[in-house]
Computed example of a mutant assay.
Amino acid sequence: MTMDLRLVIFDVDGTLVDSQADILASMTAAFGAIGLDVPERQTVLGIVGLSLDRAIRALAPDVDDASISTAVEAYKTEYQRLRATGGTQKSSPLYDGIRDVLDTLHGQPEVLLGVATGKSRRGLVSLMDGHQMGHLFVTQQCADDHPSKPHPSMVMTALAETGVAPEQAVMIGDTSFDMDMAKAAGVAALGVTWGYHSPASLSAADRIAARVQDLPELVHAIWSDRT
């Protein structure tokens, strides 16, 4: 009997890696470039997961398109500088236990792994190379190729690329954008509490993980719930 393939799609920032220090520093540079004070830390972290232009527009809704473009470029320049200076391991460290979880899931023959992120392709490739984990993910969706989360395009493309049915897929993320994207694509949503949105904002999740090491068990529990 042929084994049904299953797909686990991970968000990146706030789920696999903790990049908040560089995000906050880069956003400070972005707002400085257009002569505005950067919003408070929690406000900035609340938009992580959106595509960069949409994130900055959400933080500065009254500025014009030219200023948004200036801020985006300033953000990218500073983020790249910080990564080049500190290296990926310092700039965007993996959360404790994440690599073990990825290796565990990757080692299960019926399970495929993917990512869906608001990062640019350049930023995603740099991160994957820095952590030597690009080979783990058979589908990698990023902001360059899709509308911003919570639009379901990233998840739907991941399903199409892998041939996995929606009921056999799980989206794992730390934000309401991830949960809403999963629901819009018809896949299960697994929220994590160690990222940038509060647990209360993950109300659309099918299940919530408070510990990294619980992820494999919860993923399989979700599949059991849906069959």
Rank of each mutant, 00 (worst) to 15 (best):
T77A: 13
L127S: 02
L102P: 01
G86A: 14
Y79P: 00
Y95C: 04
L105H: 04
V111S: 02
K90T: 15
I98F: 12
H131Q: 01
L113S: 00
S120C: 05
L112R: 10
D96M: 10
G118A: 10
V101M: 10
G107D: 00
V111H: 00
Y79C: 00
V111L: 10
G123V: 14
D103L: 14
T117K: 10
V115P: 03
Y79N: 03
V111C: 01
L112H: 02
G130E: 14
G118E: 08
Y95Q: 04
D96W: 09
D96T: 15
S126N: 14
T104A: 15
L94Q: 02
L102G: 03
R121M: 13
V115R: 04
Q108S: 06
E110H: 07
D103W: 07
T77F: 05
L124H: 14
Y95D: 01
G114F: 08
R99H: 02
T88S: 06
R99E: 04
Q80N: 05
R81Y: 03
G114V: 05
D100L: 09
S126C: 11
R83W: 12
K90R: 14
T88K: 02
G97F: 13
Q108E: 14
D100K: 14
T117H: 05
M128H: 07
Q89L: 13
V125L: 08
V115A: 09
G86H: 15
S91Q: 11
D96N: 12
Q108L: 15
Q80S: 11
I98W: 07
G118H: 10
M128A: 13
L112D: 01
D129V: 04
V125K: 12
Q108F: 02
T117A: 08
L113Q: 00
D96H: 15
D100S: 15
K119T: 03
V125E: 15
S120L: 11
R122L: 12
D129H: 06
S92R: 10
P109Y: 06
S120T: 15
L124T: 15
G107T: 02
G123F: 15
R83N: 07
G86R: 15
E110D: 11
G87T: 07
Q108M: 15
H131L: 13
R122I: 09
T77C: 00
